[in-house]
Simulated assay, not measured.
Amino acid sequence: MSNLYIGLMSGTSADGVDAALVEFSESSFRIHHAIDIPYQPEFRQRILNLALNDACSKAEMATISGELADLFATAVNQLLSEANISSDQIAAIGSHGHTIDHAPNNLLPYSFQITDHARLTEKIGITVVCDFRTRDVAAGGQGAPLVPAFHRWLFNASGQNSQEAEKAFINIGGISNITLLNKGLGYDCGPGNCLIDYWHHRHTGENFDTSGNTARLGTLEPELLNSMLEESYFSALAPKSTGREYFNHQWLEPYLKGKDYSWHDISFTLTALTARIIAHQLNTNECCEAFICGGGSHNTLLLEQIQHYAPTVSLKTTTDLGIAPDWIEAAAFAWLARQTLLGLPGNLPSATGAKGERILGAIYPA
């Protein structure tokens, strides 16, 4: 079997698809090449509407699922072309799909991702592994976050040495999540970029605030920050996971009603909110070192604020480990596809809450 896999990730921010070509050995990996295919603004809005609108049509959902498959196929073909690799050299593709509803705490729990992966397989002629969350949910888990299992494999953390100071890995996408390597824990902290991006887009039309430059024009509103920090999710015990279906404009607007904050001050305060909830986890778990990945790693104001609220933590990005922060999650789904084909578990029960380790994913053979 080839050691080359492709990982595809469309995250909560819904800004595009990340594609990473990854070569694995027994205990390490190397990213050969990676690309990002941005979504067009109209298509991005249609995806966001699915996640936020309970009354979306079945036809629209099916259509977007097919369009995502076509975009994923474009990403795969471009990735292979730029890397000068043929499709028959790829063992499999691991695709996360795009989450439009995550409800692991329902009476009948589920986590729902779309993308027509059968169509993707037909278009590219490569085995596709997908639907990774469902088996974990069926086993009593949250179905997320799944990346902590990859973090532990990647960084070879045993989680058994209680004498060693705790190290953490923080992924800041639309939602932020943490992996505590020594404790073998992982969970969603809460909003990452989703509220920051929503507010910035509302006032500028741009998808994100580059380096936090717009938020820097504002100042902290302590009353607003403290009221938002009372959200019960932040104090809930792990395992826990969340998504845009919870932390969105409908969550934010009641905190702003009747107030006269400037929009720049709200931008700064939303950045501080994400920083505070991440820093709280670092401080509570007595972390000595934390590595940041995901889109939030480029928001220098956000990183400064995390450091401000967690001053004793040595804060870095995964660049310090020789891994570009933008491709960690795509690489994780390449790894998950490999786990599936090798008949190995892909979840970390201490992170998701599942009854035990499970082989994850559905396979569409080439």
Rank of each mutant, 00 (worst) to 15 (best):
A14I: 12
Q78M: 11
R338H: 05
L229F: 12
L237F: 05
R133V: 01
G205T: 04
L195N: 09
Y187C: 01
G356N: 10
I277T: 08
A337Q: 11
I124V: 06
I37R: 14
G361W: 12
E329P: 05
I266K: 02
G186F: 02
I323F: 13
Y246C: 01
L252W: 05
Q339S: 08
L180N: 00
P349A: 00
A83Q: 00
G258V: 13
L21T: 14
T340M: 07
L301E: 00
Q40T: 14
E166V: 07
L68M: 15
A55S: 15
G7K: 05
G190W: 05
F155N: 12
D136M: 04
P349I: 06
V313W: 00
F112M: 13
H151A: 05
Q142V: 03
A75N: 10
N347P: 01
G192A: 02
E166M: 11
G140W: 06
T300P: 00
F112P: 05
E286V: 14
N161R: 13
V137C: 01
G205Q: 07
T284P: 07
E253K: 15
K240F: 01
I114V: 14
Q339Y: 05
Y187V: 05
L185D: 01
S232F: 06
Q250V: 09
E26A: 15
I114G: 04
T179I: 08
N213I: 11
A91R: 15
C194R: 08
A215G: 08
P349C: 00
E122F: 08
E122D: 09
Y187R: 02
K167N: 10
P109N: 02
P311F: 03
G174V: 11
G140P: 01
V76P: 02
N226G: 07
T214D: 15
L282G: 04
Y110V: 04
P365G: 08
T127Q: 02
Q160H: 14
A51M: 15
G343V: 09
S10I: 04
S81M: 12
T74V: 14
A92I: 04
P254V: 10
I277H: 09
I90T: 01
D197Q: 06
L217H: 07
P38D: 12
D197A: 11
T318E: 02
